[in-house]
Structure formats: C-alpha cells, structure tokens
Design a protein around this nucleic acid. Structure first.
Length: 280
DNA sequence: CGATTATCCTGTGCGC
DNA sequence: TGCGCACAGGATAATC
C-alpha cells in the first residue's frame, strides 16, 4: 500500500522523532513480522542510538550506533506509529520499540505482509548514497527519486513488457507502486500498456521528468491516503495527495487535461487507469 | 528467459 | 440488517 511518497513521509518522521535517541527495548509479538531470523536477534539493537533513518524505494533503513541496520517494509497494510508509553495496544500490533525520551514506536499491520529484519551485511555504497545498501536489498534498482533518464533508458531497453509493469518492477526502479505508476504515465502522456522498449529517447526523458515531479509533489503532500485510511504517518495523520490524483481510481470521470472519460484496463491481476485520448 | 498467476493475510465495501 | 464475495497500496515463488 504505501509507495515511495508514503514511506518517505514516515522516514522523515522517524528521523525527526527518533534520531539520536537510545533504544531501551524491543518487543515482538507473533511469528510473521520478524520472519527472516529469530526475533530475539533484534535485542542486539538495545542500547544503541538511532543514527539515521534512511530509505531505498519502499524499504526503510534504520542505521544504529552499534553498526546494525534494521530494515522495515510496510507492504500492503503496515503502519509505524509514535504512541504514548503504555497506551493500550491496538489490534495487530506486532512490534514495539521503546526509546529514551520519546514515544514508543509501534509496528501495526493487519495483513501481516510487512516485515522487520536485521541486515546481515552490506554491498558497497552506491553512487550518491552515504550508506551502503544491505545485501538483502541488492536486487533493487535505483531509487525512484534519484533515477536518471539514462538509467530509465536502460531499464526500459529490450523489455517488451508494458511500461506500467516496468515502472512497478522494483528491480528496474525502486519505489513506484500501483497508484503512482498510473499518475506518472498520465503526467508523461504515455499509455501504461505501451511496450517499454518502444519508448523513444524523448519519451524516456519525459517519463524521467514525470517520475520526479509526481513523486516530489506527492512527498510534499505527505503521500496518499485512500478511503480505508490504511496509510497514515507516525502521528496517525492522513496524507493529502489523494485529492490530486488525476487518473487513479477515477474511471469514467473526465480527464483533467482533455475532459474525455478516464479508462480502466486490466493488467493481469492489477488494473491501470489512464486517458485513452491524451496518453499515447 | 521473461511474463502472468497464485499466495501470504485481514478488513472493507458492495450487491443481493 | 446480514451474508458472501471481490478486491485492496506489495513482493516473490511457482508456473506457463
């Protein structure tokens, strides 16, 4: 559910609320949220200070003074919430991190797709990144807010797959999901079912510009919160970008550019919303 | 090899 | 009002 803008909003909240704070304890409930290794391994973090809250794509990376990296992915329904000490645990609370001088950090996730794990090692730092990426995330493409037109050209080259499929493929570009892929295609005036390899250089450049501008605008608006309010920030507040969606979820409504009705097409299991008149 | 599909879960909203 | 079913922001292993 959360895509790059929502995860980035959470990251900023973590950085401002918890950076420099010492971790007092970690408590994990159930088996699914910490599933890559024994949950008690997280006790290694106790006594460390959070040095930096970082992000690559939809993954949160918490770097600690002891040298450990805690990786968090919210998947479809995960939330991180800054909650007053000792207030009642809501249903589906799977982990609680207690900090010195700050509210508890709670991981709440009804569908239990989300996960937390300690990185086991790092690959060399990528260009433009201060910290190395955990080996577990080595398969990810460049972060969607950093990606260049040249990198996008490589990602789309030789791929007959629909453009939207490539955009949501985290190995190609990390951070774009179902909502923003549609919004980016609309902004770039490109049909989501265009074979990725058919994009001309000028179209790839347009796509790169739209990637940047749509994601930056969404980050500025603190992400998108849909009707089910599954995404909220650390304070429990909804985002504001949903009111700026141009095509996502708007089948039949007039295109904001040309007033023709927005179309919906099926895409394997997923669907894509687009304007058949002004996206080519 | 690359592209669909099935799966992990719970909650919600819709149609009957 | 109540029930059953389809569907949901994701990622990945299995299958075509």
């Amino acid at each position: 559910m959360p895509e790059l803008p929502e995860v980035e909003t959470v990251r900023r909240g973590l950085q401002s609320l918890y950076a420099g704070r010492k971790l007092l304890s970690v408590e994990v409930f159930g088996k699914r949220t910490v599933r890559r290794h024994p949950p008690q391994l997280l006790d290694r973090l106790t006594g460390s200070r959070l040095e930096q809250a970082s992000r690559h794509g939809k993954y949160l990376l918490l770097y600690w003074s002891g040298g450990e990296t805690l990786v968090v992915h919210l998947r479809m329904s995960g939330q991180l919430l800054a909650t007053p000490q000792g207030s009642p645990l809501v249903a589906h609370t799977h982990a609680v991190l207690r900090f010195a001088g700050a509210r508890e950090l709670r991981f709440v996730d009804p569908r239990t797709f989300g996960e937390l794990f300690l990185a086991t090692g790092s690959e060399p730092a990528r260009r433009g990144e201060l910290r190395p990426l955990p080996v577990e995330l080595a398969h990810l493409g460049p972060d969607a807010l950093q990606v260049s037109a040249a990198q996008l050209a490589v990602a789309t080259q030789g791929r007959r797959a629909p453009l939207k499929s490539v955009l949501v493929d985290q190995r190609a570009v990390a951070g774009v999901g179902n909502i923003y892929a549609d919004e980016i295609c609309f902004s770039a005036r490109l049909r989501p079912d265009r074979p990725a390899s058919s994009l001309r250089p000028s179209e790839v450049r347009r796509l790169a510009g739209s990637l940047r501008s749509v994601l930056e605008a969404a980050v500025s608006a603190r992400g998108s919160t849909l009707r089910d309010a599954r995404y909220v920030d650390l304070e429990g507040a909804a985002g504001g970008y949903q009111s700026e969606h141009k095509v996502y979820g708007r089948a039949g409504q007039p295109c904001p550019r040309c007033r023709q009705p927005i179309s919906k097409m099926s895409f394997g299991a997923k669907r894509a919303y687009f304007c058949a008149n002004c996206q080519r």
